[in-house]
């Protein structure tokens, strides 16, 4: 029995469906119960959270968690489906430390809010950037430029007169 089916037996109400994603056991979880399931996943021996991905499907957001167990040599993929208007899911940073930065990256590029995150701010793009670039409705026609302020901080603006050659 693979770990996804194990989760289905333990949490019959929380797990919506199980399957496979590129030969990895996949379980789709209700977003309210993610934290409970994740605690159990940690107890099952999945000590490594490899990557968190956020995907924009125009009508919904999906957040994909890839786990790996170094002791059992097993993979597990958890997936939550979020509302497009209010993409919010609870943070896993209290269980896996690495989730701190991975969730900040997902927040930065896709704009998914992680409730209970200790320090939810942009990690790659400078503060003040307009929009989340990996969303489908991101406006590519607006050029944003970065200039360096007096204290070395990044200032984002849409006019590049300080930066571009005249």
């Amino acid at each position: 029995m693979n770990p996804a089916e194990e989760l289905k037996q333990l949490f019959p109400d929380s797990v919506v469906s199980v399957g496979f994603q590129i030969k990895k056991p996949l379980a789709i979880i209700k977003k309210e119960d993610l934290l409970n399931v994740a605690k159990k996943v940690k107890e099952m021996g999945f000590d490594n959270l490899s990557v968190i991905t956020g995907i924009d499907y125009r009508d919904r957001f999906e957040v994909v968690y890839n786990f790996f167990s170094y002791t059992k040599k097993q993979n597990l993929v958890l997936k939550v489906i979020l509302d497009h208007n209010n993409p919010e899911v609870s943070s896993l940073a209290s269980i896996w430390k690495v989730a701190d930065w991975l969730e900040r990256e997902t927040y930065d590029l896709v704009g998914i809010t992680f409730g209970g995150h200790p320090n939810l701010k942009r990690i790659l793009l400078p503060d003040g950037w307009i929009g989340h670039p990996l969303r489908k409705d991101y406006d590519m026609n607006v050029d944003q430029f970065v200039t360096v302020g007096e204290d070395g901080e990044d200032i984002v603006s849409t006019d590049g007169t300080n930066l571009l050659r005249r």
Partner: peptide, 9 residues
């Protein structure tokens, strides 16, 4: 975009 002002400097 973030490196550009540094290159200019």
């Amino acid at each position: 975009k973030r490196m550009a002002p540094r290159v200019k400097k």
